[in-house]
Amino acid sequence: MTTTLRGGSQTAEYIQRQLADQRRFLHESAALGIEQVLRDELADTWEECSQPDWDGYNALPVTTGSLTNAGRLLLSLPLGTKLPSIGAIPSGHISLEWHHSRRRTLTVTVDEDGDLRYAALLGPGRVCGTEPFFDETPQIILDLIARVYQC
């Protein structure tokens, strides 16, 4: 998976690779990292949902663009973030769910254009919206994850 390169020189590319390698190394930590989710849950979702009609109700296949962006989003989460459950929705997009209880839950769907659509139930309140994803988790998503588990 790649990220947008902010620069055009070989040196810029070298820096980006070094930083990504370091981060990836930390993500391999069982305590802090997201590697296991990428390897297991995201891969399982892809395996189960990459064919048309994977739900028996004419669901669209999960797109590789959504899969790639979901992987990037997971890797951009701060180390140690509570891990989400991974799934897919019938429009062919990967969904990440942080679930604490019936009324404290957050779902983020990731499309191939890099738009994040989020919907949260927080007790009596509902929050939803769309944020562009530029390889950094939007602050509102981080705030909502924290609020899901804040009770």
Binding site: W46, T64, G65, T68, G71, E112
Partner: peptide, 26 residues
């Protein structure tokens, strides 16, 4: 291009699908 790799595990074994999506121009 944006480049991604996805692995598909079928009854015949594992296959790897590469995905290239237009990202912009340099």
């Amino acid at each position: 291009q944006e480049f991604g790799v996805a692995t598909q595990i079928s009854a015949e074994g594992e296959s790897v699908r590469q995905h290239h999506a237009w990202h912009g121009y340099r």
